[in-house]
């Protein structure tokens, strides 16, 4: 029995990756939930919006690298974020102007907007692939590790190492700042409150003199920022491929639905619920268990509930369970 090593292995292989992935999902789900709350449809173009924003970040990263601009040990991509947010905002505002606004004025059914967003998805997907291609892009520079496994072992003398990648730290800090800023904005500012009011009761918001066009525009700008940040953090941590970003749609939708579509707090909680479930279910527990149980009981098999190929099945199961038993989400008191 070696509880300390078990704990370190657990932190290293489950808690840290899940927290980092959860933060990425949470930021992404915040965008989906905001758009749902204000514009009242599920945006199927979201994954490709994230891909577009990340692509712009990559292009600026390359530009800065070629100019020799660096903020080492932080990744150059962070410096590129604001530029990408501006460009992605412009894209989303433009899309709203030429595409979504028409259906909003018509008060089209949400499902029509979902289909329209699938059209937008095609356009964005094409755009991304035309500009940057379909290949994998790795754009993480800066410090590789905050704590490396080797150092950790040397300091503590434990058999198990605990590594914190630079990108993990960047993810956690950036996500935390993003979420705090967003919640401060929604709770404390006049515009933020008007967005909540609009999401809560559109007709009454209009009666109160809240300008719907402005609310919608602000929503798209915030959504752009969230898409860029979520996409970039994910890309830094793993890597960038347009195709992967499309498939992030499922865990992100699951996160937003788990928290109750339209609820920002719920989206954050949902992101972590989905990420932790995914990793707990697909992690091979053999190592951790071997440390905990007496040696003779050590398992032969990997002790893995599902192979990592099926990680989407986890998001999906959570989604289904929530839809069946808590259609308003875990954190929404019935409205």
């Amino acid at each position: 029995m070696d509880l300390l090593n078990a704990l370190v292995a657990f932190l290293n292989f489950v808690v840290i990756p899940a927290a980092s992935y959860g933060a990425q999902l949470a930021v992404g789900a915040l965008g989906v939930t905001l758009i749902f709350g204000i514009l009242r449809f599920s945006n199927f173009a979201w994954g490709d919006t994230m891909a577009f924003g990340t692509m712009v970040v990559i292009l600026f990263t390359w530009l800065f690298q070629s100019l020799g601009i660096s903020i080492a040990p932080l990744p150059t991509a962070l410096l590129a974020l604001p530029f990408s947010i501006v460009i992605t905002s412009a894209l989303l505002l433009g899309t709203d102007r030429v595409v979504y606004r028409f259906y909003r004025k018509q008060k089209a059914k949400p499902i029509i907007l979902v289909i329209v967003s699938a059209g937008v998805m095609f356009v964005m997907n094409g755009l991304v692939r035309i500009v940057i291609g379909t290949e994998e892009q790795n754009f993480a520079d800066g410090g590789r590790f905050l704590i490396s496994a080797g150092d950790f072992k040397a300091w503590t003398g434990l058999a198990e190492g605990l590594a914190i990648k630079g990108t993990t730290a960047v993810t956690m800090v950036t996500a935390l700042l993003t979420m705090s800023a967003l919640f401060w904005f929604l709770q404390k500012t006049r515009t933020g409150k008007s967005m909540r009011a609009f999401s809560d009761n559109e007709d009454l918001a209009l009666l109160s003199g809240i300008n719907p066009d402005r609310v919608v525009q602000v929503t798209w700008v915030i959504a752009a920022a969230l898409a860029v940040i979520a996409g970039t953090l994910y890309g830094l941590d793993k890597s960038f491929r347009p195709f992967i970003y499309f498939s992030l749609l499922l865990p992100i939708f699951a996160s937003a639905v788990v928290g109750g579509l339209g609820s920002p707090m719920g989206a954050v909680a949902g992101g972590f619920v989905v990420a932790f479930s995914e990793i707990v279910v697909t992690y091979a527990w053999k190592k951790v268990i071997t440390y905990i149980v007496p040696q003779t009981w050590a398992p032969d098999s990997l002790m893995q509930l599902l192979s990592t190929d099926y990680k989407f099945a986890v998001s999906f199961s959570i989604l289904i369970i929530v839809l069946l038993f808590m259609p308003n989400g875990l954190f929404n008191k019935g409205k």
Binding site: R190, K193, R196, A197, D200, N201, L204, A205, S208, K335
Partner: peptide
């Protein structure tokens, strides 16, 4: 009906009334 913002506090409801 639907004449308040249910998810917002009483004071926020009043603030929204004064939005203009």
């Amino acid at each position: 009906t639907h004449n308040i913002f249910t998810s917002m506090t009483v004071e926020e409801n009043l603030e929204m009334g004064a939005f203009l």
